[in-house]
Design a protein around this nucleic acid. Structure first.
Lengths: 196, 196
DNA sequence: TCTTAGACTTACCATTTGGTAAGTTATCTG
DNA sequence: CAGATAACTTACCAAATGGTAAGTCTAAGA
């Protein structure tokens, strides 16, 4: 039961921080959820901020293993974008808290966010180069690559993690709707990216 | 100094809740920022939750007056979308906290969010009908209207309110970049929406 | 001038929060 | 078996938090 506790804490923290937020989650709540005492958490992570740092590291790993395949694929043109969007939606359905934490950190910045920030920087850098190549090759419409990616990133993350807005639109955020949202997002991006 | 205090509290709360979040903002901080005591806040708003409700109401008003013109315009086709996006970016530059609060509420939901939720519901309902008409008229590409709007909403709000991601892309979130982002977002949406 | 009401402030308070200190228990090692 | 070490728990604690109660000051009305 020993070495597992650390991972259980990280798992629970990821869910709590990613879905409810950092300040909204107290160590006491986390401990109660885990059936241990708060001090057990502080034994493994010397402060709440260190716990956040470690949680972010876990999220970076999960993000890497979920999107790594698609982002490093050798697919060309729109197929590669489609792979990435599919992988992102799959992650949003399986572990919404991971994308929630990405959003949280990307908004707040903060000192603990170094790992995620640099991981994202790397992924976005690759993406920029990929998009530029495709534009040069004439497979993508010519737009400013970084702004384009920001729009694509925002659209995908937003669609995948904005259940309340879906409700406001009269859509239930269940699995079927998510599948539909994925399909429509891909069509939307295809239309935006591919020059006729 | 009397009647103004209430509005000053609301202004400061809007900035704090919208940019830092609800749980991350304490009444003591707000009071210190305003140069009054916490109890002065509680005199005007009987609890922190009531303050949030009133703050949301203010945000709804600001949102309405900022986007109302564009959203009720009689412009047709893509021009109307462009007007709306311009108005949104203008709001993002002038009062980022308003969109921040919209995002916060649209994520967390909660009991206090009724006003904003219904305001957004109404705006989105109008938007759905507008998009449907334009599709029928053949001016917009045929996509699922609600999903399309979710993607558009996410892209615009994301681009307008995601400074950390802009930094990760190597863009400084200053006014010039925001103008550029607006132009690129409009081009992106034009490409996605208009069938050739 | 006396009173009343509004707009606060000073003084508290119970609870929650992140964190420390000092045990306790089990396992592993010499 | 002795003792060290890892993995906790029990017992605290100071600061911060949302909120209550009572007092103060000022301006307006009777």
């Amino acid at each position: 039961m020993a070495a597992q506790t650390r991972e259980r804490i990280l798992d629970t923290s990821l869910a709590a921080f990613g879905l409810r937020g950092y300040d909204s989650t107290s160590l006491d709540e986390l401990a109660a959820e885990l059936g241990i005492t708060k001090q057990a958490i502080l034994y493994h992570f010397s402060s709440k901020e260190h716990l956040l740092t470690a949680t972010i590291e876990l999220a970076v790993k999960e993000l890497g293993s979920a999107l790594g395949g698609a982002s490093k694929s050798q697919a060309r043109g729109f197929q590669r974008i489609e792979d990435l969007v599919r992988a992102t939606f799959s992650l949003a359905a399986r572990r919404p808290e991971v994308l929630g934490l990405v959003r949280l950190v990307s908004r707040q910045g903060g000192s603990a966010s170094g790992a995620l920030a640099s991981a994202m920087s790397a992924m976005l850098g690759d993406a920029v180069r990929f998009v530029e190549r495709e534009m040069v090759a004439g497979r993508f419409r010519r737009l400013e690559p970084r702004m384009l990616l920001l729009a694509v990133y925002s659209a995908v993350i937003g669609v995948a993690t904005e259940p309340e807005v879906m409700r406001a639109l009269g859509l239930e955020p269940d699995l079927r709707s998510l599948v539909k949202a994925r399909r429509e997002t891909i069509e939307f991006l295809r239309a935006a990216l591919i020059a006729d």
